[in-house]
């Protein structure tokens, strides 16, 4: 059984059909990347999974359970964490409060404290900034905070929407190596990226999406060598 599976998803976003029958799955422990150009339907796919966009047709399964009609907060509670595009840090909450919000559905305070320590392990810089307001941090720090916040819920699947967007190359390197590290410690990851080359470098498998349809899918190593992909996305 796949941990996350999309079957024939059709969805509309802003009046246009953004997804036209997307099939996709993620297995436990994998990094799967969804690559494609601007407006191809990458973000809509993630939003459909998290419940922010309701599909017109098709089903979404989490651990075999149909979550197609779940509301965003229900999907979050059932184990899907999303790092949204543009990070969406709560600007006027402190860094600590941002992390606490990530663990909103966790009742046990001890678990929250443990998870926070774990977040500090991956992102030591967050620990130095706990009382600072989220909105005053740099883009790279906000990306780290957004990832840390998502980890606070203790998710089964971590979805990242364009984590490299707008960041300096050196920061992107760091972010990607942390994604890799997270995966090595057992986290299942669905990574949406425009930065196809870097995403395929760390992913097990990849899907290429174009105008709402999956154009191609397979092992990252295979996709990296594919001439068509090389020309369209890796140039």
């Amino acid at each position: 059984m796949h941990i996350l599976e999309l079957r024939d998803i059709h969805a509309f976003y802003g009046g246009i059909q953004a997804l036209k029958g997307v099939n996709l799955y993620v297995d436990k422990g994998e990094i799967v990347t969804l690559i494609g150009s601007n407006g191809a339907g990458k973000s809509t796919t993630l939003k459909t999974i998290s419940g922010q966009v309701k599909p017109k047709q098709g089903n979404i399964f989490l651990n075999g359970k149909d979550i197609t009609s779940a509301l965003p907060h229900e999907t979050a509670v059932s184990g899907v964490a999303q790092v949204p595009e543009g990070r969406r840090i709560f600007p006027r909450l402190t860094v600590k409060e941002n992390l606490e919000m990530g663990a909103f559905s966790v009742k046990n305070k001890k678990v929250v404290a443990e998870r926070m320590e774990k977040v500090f392990h991956y992102f030591p810089r967050i620990k130095e900034r706990l009382s600072q307001r989220g909105g005053t941090m740099s883009g790279g720090e906000q990306q780290m905070l957004a990832m840390g916040r998502a980890l606070m819920s203790g998710p089964n699947v971590l979805m990242l929407d364009e984590p490299s967007m707008g960041l300096a190359p050196i920061i992107v390197e760091q972010i990607f190596s942390i994604i890799k590290e997270l995966n090595e410690s057992g986290m299942t990851i669905l990574l949406v990226e425009q930065n196809a080359y870097q995403a395929l470098q760390i992913a097990n498998r990849g899907y290429v999406i174009q105008t709402g349809e999956i154009l191609m899918s397979g092992q990252s190593s295979v996709l990296l060598r594919d001439d068509q992909i090389k020309e369209a996305y890796l140039a």
């Binding site: 509301l71 979050a76 909450l93």
Partner: peptide, 23 residues
């Protein structure tokens, strides 16, 4: 916690929902 959730929803409703908050 609920007070923080109130402030979070005031700042960004969609993202609050992604945190598992019933807006």
């Amino acid at each position: 916690k609920w007070g923080t959730a109130m402030r979070a929803v005031a700042q960004d409703r969609d993202t609050s929902a992604l945190m598992g908050v019933n807006v």
